[in-house]
């Protein structure tokens, strides 16, 4: 009796969650796969009763051959490969430094966490204003060259068109890398510092008695003991990196590129939304399944490597 009552109650309590999940999570999974394999599927054109869509992999072929998509894939991969190692290494160094000091440690921790509680569109606009050149395509005659260029010229360097008309692809990517690393540091520092603080001090004492050098201690003790946390920030970093979109919108606006070459810095997620707005749900679904595949593969590779290397 009691058992039956509990069953009934449990499903009652779970009902709101299950109904919403069926509608907004389970159905989308099924439908996205369906649309991805219906050639040339579009939602508006599907309303037309005469229109039928053939089953096939044309959407995938089209997406992969589409130059806009390969650009997006290249941009996303490039940003991932550059930002994840840089931010992880920098966060590791900062965390180790923070862990070795006492005075001001809490104040510095708070400062380093600040970029986390920001709106990535809003702060992206601030970065844009720091790098932007105002007044003229000819940068030697520009009215205002942005604070970053001011600093470069102060140290005797030459001004660079970072994000404005006529800027180079590598300059654009550099700005994005700086912004994404700045944005990604807080989370990584938080996790790594938490890991460091839970490391058993005995290992370090033993190393001290043996007279092991600091450098050796870092690579032989700190890094191995931290490896679960490092693996964690790497996985979340890569997953987040492949879903990058709003940071680029923040810096470059919805054009996703400098004014003279819109779309140059578009990302995978940006591509999916572009197709969605153009009623190409089939292509969007195919692209999102490809994105899912990439994320899945990275996660599996990471798990495989970390199960071998990670020491608990």
């Amino acid at each position: 009796m009691v058992d039956n009552k509990q069953q009934w109650k449990a499903w009652l309590y779970l009902a709101p969650a299950i109904v919403l999940l069926l509608l907004f999570t389970v159905w989308p999974i099924i439908n996205t796969v369906r649309m991805a394999f219906l050639e040339g599927y579009g939602n508006l054109s599907s309303l037309n009763a005469d229109k039928t869509f053939e089953f096939g992999i044309e959407n995938f072929e089209k997406v992969v051959k589409y130059k806009k998509f390969t650009t997006c894939l290249k941009n996303t991969c490039l940003l991932c490969v550059l930002t994840v190692p840089i931010s992880t290494l920098l966060a590791l160094v900062i965390a180790v430094c923070l862990n070795s000091i006492k005075p001001f440690s809490r104040l510095l921790q708070t400062i380093y966490f600040l970029p986390y509680v920001t709106n990535s569109i809003a702060i992206g606009m601030v970065f844009a204003s720091m790098f932007n050149i105002i007044g003229g395509a000819d940068i030697s005659k520009a009215v205002s060259i942005g604070i970053v260029n001011n600093v470069i010229e102060f140290f005797g360097g030459e001004r660079i068109a970072w994000i404005s008309t006529g800027s180079s692809y590598s300059a654009n990517i550099a700005v994005m890398v700086i912004y994404i690393v700045w944005n990604a540091l807080p989370f990584k520092i938080l996790i790594l510092l938490g890991g460091l603080q839970s490391v058993n001090k005995q290992y370090y004492d033993a190393a001290k008695i043996d007279g092991t050098s600091k450098w050796r201690v870092f690579w032989r003790i700190t890094v191995p003991l931290l490896s679960p946390m490092i693996a964690y920030v790497l996985i979340t970093g890569f997953i987040g990196g492949f879903k990058e979109y709003t940071a680029t919108v923040g810096v470059f606006g919805e054009k996703m590129g400098p004014a003279d070459d819109p779309g140059r810095l578009n990302t995978m997620v940006g591509f999916i939304y572009k197709q969605l707005e153009g009623d190409h749900q089939g292509l969007a679904s195919a692209a999102s399944l490809i994105l899912f595949g990439i994320i899945l593969v990275i996660t599996l590779i990471n798990l495989k490597i970390s199960s071998k290397k990670v020491q608990y």
Binding site: T25, I29, N31, T32, L276, S285, S288, L289
Partner: peptide, 17 residues
Amino acid sequence: ATMMIPGELFTITNYIT
């Protein structure tokens, strides 16, 4: 298991829904 799937995948169908 649903936590593994990127949100973009849901968005496409949710928009239609």
